[in-house]
Amino acid sequence: MDEAPLIRRAQEGDERAGRQLFDAYQLRTYRLAFGLLGDTADAEEVAQDALTYALLNIYRYNPELSSFSTWLHTITVSRARDKRRRKILPSIPLAQWLGLGNQIRDYTPGPEACYMHREVETGLTAALNELSPKLREAIVLRFYADCTYKEMGEIMGCSLNTARSRLRLAIEKLRTHLGDEQVRWLATESIR
């Protein structure tokens, strides 16, 4: 589908074009968010947030700078990072901190960390959950969104070389994590 006319119409304020773009990208955006966060409710919230921002600000999109999907992926990755931060970061009022001084350790595991350790998982999901958010982004952008290294750099906000090294590091960590299980995992039939 040539989406350029659709994007142009949406930029001119055509609601039907906006709805068509939503329909075309909602699944991909949701799944990308799920790949980044590993939680269905969070993924849905992030996808809605990213699509809302992208479509209401579509006049800012410049087709000469990137493809629409790269632009939307950039927004989705940014929103997923925001979501992760909100769940992980501590929230203690300053007064409480001042009252208790240095004894407070603020980085107690947040809900996401608890979720990650809640169940004993096996195989790929468990291995992905062990990756840092940035390495996970590299894996999902490369192997799900099929991005080039240049696109990965644009989306993750880093240089092309950093995008490459993140992907390589992620593969190495996944292989190390899977360890002996890797052989078994490789031997299993793929799901589809």
Binding site: G18, Q26, G35, T40, E44, Q48, I139, I171, Q182, R192
Partner: peptide, 28 residues
């Protein structure tokens, strides 16, 4: 490893579909 990773990741993500809550109506 990379081949299997791609196949399984895509399959894992494509098994998931959002609820009807994800909708253009919020944007309209």
């Amino acid at each position: 490893f990379c081949r299997k990773l791609q196949i399984d990741l895509v399959a894992e993500l494509e098994r998931n579909t959002p609820t009807p809550q994800l909708s253009f109506d919020h944007i309209a």
